[in-house]
Nucleic acid binder design. Structure first.
Length: 466
RNA sequence: GGUCCCAUCGUCUAGUGGCCUAGGACAUCGGCCUCUCACGCCGAAAACACGGGUUCGACUCCCGUUGGGAUCACCA
């Protein structure tokens, strides 16, 4: 039974890179019909917040990554860690270290200055006496010779010299356990079979393997995925723009687009670009994960988003669009109408936010003309035509797109003008600008009453300013 | 600096020794379509970091150089 886990520390929003790690774990588990466990690594009590925990849940749900069992919280598992520590204590595999942290810090700096690797010197390693009144940390008695091999599912075999590793601290002087210890204990205790995580953990892996061995626990499989970098090839961070998954939701991205983008960053399946979630579960494998780091490419995400917007139904898009419209001051009370007008914007919008902006003219009482557009198309010469259109519209019984087209056809031939010459002034009068969905569609959706009012408003505008 | 990892178009990538005159996608640039803007379609430009080997034959294997990244906490 495959069991993977996603173990974020709740110190902020869900980062794009973390989401990708979660996705790969989730896909691997689901592909193998296994479990996907969520573990909140909140041992850093000052930086961890419940708000962040909730934000992480929300982001995972938005992405469609569901987890099995209740989430685990490391802060509630101190007894378990103690138990495992006892085990090590009894075996004599750990020891108390009374070294002064400031002194250690000094030594480290010195080592760096001498261009040597800063390593704990093992001063307390063979200490036999104990000092009950002195503060201490608990260190792992790491083997000083030999090699530790990591058989990485993505990177292949990586060999470390044990002499490179120092005696890492398992418990701090305040009596709380450290990361490398709790991770191993939890992964053992939760029977995690595959540890899929970021590249930045490879150097932790030999120490963790040594801990597994000390605990006499079976070793899981390791798979280290390449990191996501920013445009300047540095680790993706805020300076590269939004890094929070939910920020993308707020900018009008669809979760399918995010998933599809994230998975293709490092994973491929021949030349295929578009994958549904079901397809991913079916096709995902670690063998097809690349080994080199990838750069976050916002343009590709945007393209994927426009693709999924086109795939979405008008009705569901309408539902998704409402919050974006409300943010812009539009109260939507007719969702049917919204779904109807959306048709014209699906192929014109790359995000929901952009779509909301474009639909705005439908909801306005007064149209504000873009100065350039008004100057070019709302001119004195067009007033006669506009007036005639109003007359025809008033008498029109068929106000469907076809009916409107018939009227426009008549006018263009009678006045010997092109459709462009007729449509553009209408577009400006009706929408305020020169770009919109098809003019018949806009007129039909707006309805006779609003169209006539806007055309009349335009004539008044021309007479005053034209 | 030590250790570890990585290296195909600007970017994501296909490529697992001959199928490569290196394929696809995004972005870019042209054209077509057209009531505008888009969409769509067609086309162009664009890469195997470098140097040695191994081999009848290297993008593919090995070594080195260069470049990039990660990590070296009583953070996770």
């Amino acid at each position: 039974m495959v069991r993977t886990r996603f173990a974020p520390s709740p110190t902020g929003h869900l980062h794009i890179g973390s989401a990708r790690t979660a996705l790969f774990n989730w896909l691997f588990s689901r592909h193998h019909g296994g479990d996907f466990i969520l573990r909140i690594e909140d041992t850093d009590r000052v930086r961890s917040t419940e708000e962040s925990t909730l934000a992480i849940f929300e982001a995972l749900k938005w992405l469609g990554l569901d987890w099995d069992e209740e989430p685990f919280y490391q802060s509630q598992r101190t007894d378990i860690y103690k138990e495992y520590l006892e085990n090590l204590l009894n075996q004599g595999k750990v020891y108390r270290c009374y070294c002064d942290p400031d002194e250690l810090e000094e030594k480290k700096k010195l080592a760096f200055a001498r261009k040597e690797k800063p390593k704990y010197d093992g001063k307390c390693r063979e200490l036999t006496e104990t000092y009950p009144d002195k503060p201490f940390v608990i260190r792992f008695k790491s083997p000083q010779s030999g090699k530790t091999e990591v058989d990485d599912l993505i990177k292949g075999k990586i060999i470390f010299e044990n002499s490179e590793l120092d005696d890492l601290i398992l418990y701090r002087r305040d009596g709380t356990p450290t990361y490398n210890f709790v991770v191993v204990v939890d992964d053992v205790n939760m029977k995690i079979t595959h540890i899929i995580r970021g590249d930045d953990h490879v150097n932790n892996t030999p120490r963790q393997i040594l801990l597994y061995q000390a605990l006499n626990a079976p070793l899981p499989e390791f798979a280290h995925m390449p990191l996501t970098l920013g445009k300047d090839k540095a680790r993706l961070s805020k300076r590269h723009g939004a890094t929070s998954v939910m920020a993308y939701k707020e900018m009008g991205y669809l979760p399918q687009a995010m998933i599809n983008f994230l998975v293709r960053l490092g994973w491929s399946y021949g030349d295929q670009e578009i994958f549904s979630m079901d397809e991913l579960v079916e096709k995902f494998s670690l063998e097809n994960v690349g080994i080199s780091a990838g750069i976050f490419n916002p343009d590709k995400l945007l393209w994927l988003n426009s693709h999924y917007i086109k795939e979405e139904t008008d009705e569901s898009l309408a539902g998704l669009l409402i919050p974006f419209l409300e943010k812009k001051g539009v109260k939507v009370d007719d969702v049917k109408f919204l779904a109807k007008i959306i048709k014209g914007f699906k192929e014109r919008s790359k995000t929901l936010d952009e779509m909301a902006d474009k639909t705005l003219f439908y909801f306005k009482d007064e149209i504000e003309y873009q100065p350039k557009a008004a100057k070019k198309f709302l001119t004195l010469e067009i007033v006669d035509v506009l007036t005639e259109v109003i007359n025809r519209f008033e008498k029109a019984e068929d106000f469907s797109e076809e009916g409107i087209e018939t009227i426009f056809d008549k006018i263009t031939s009678e006045h010997n003008i092109t459709l462009g010459q007729l449509a553009q002034p209408h577009r400006v009068a009706l929408t305020g600008g020169t770009a919109s969905p098809g003019i018949y569609e806009v007129i039909a959706n707006l309805g006779k009453e609003r169209v006539i009012k806007r055309l009349k408003d335009a004539i008044i505008f021309i007479e005053n300013y034209g």
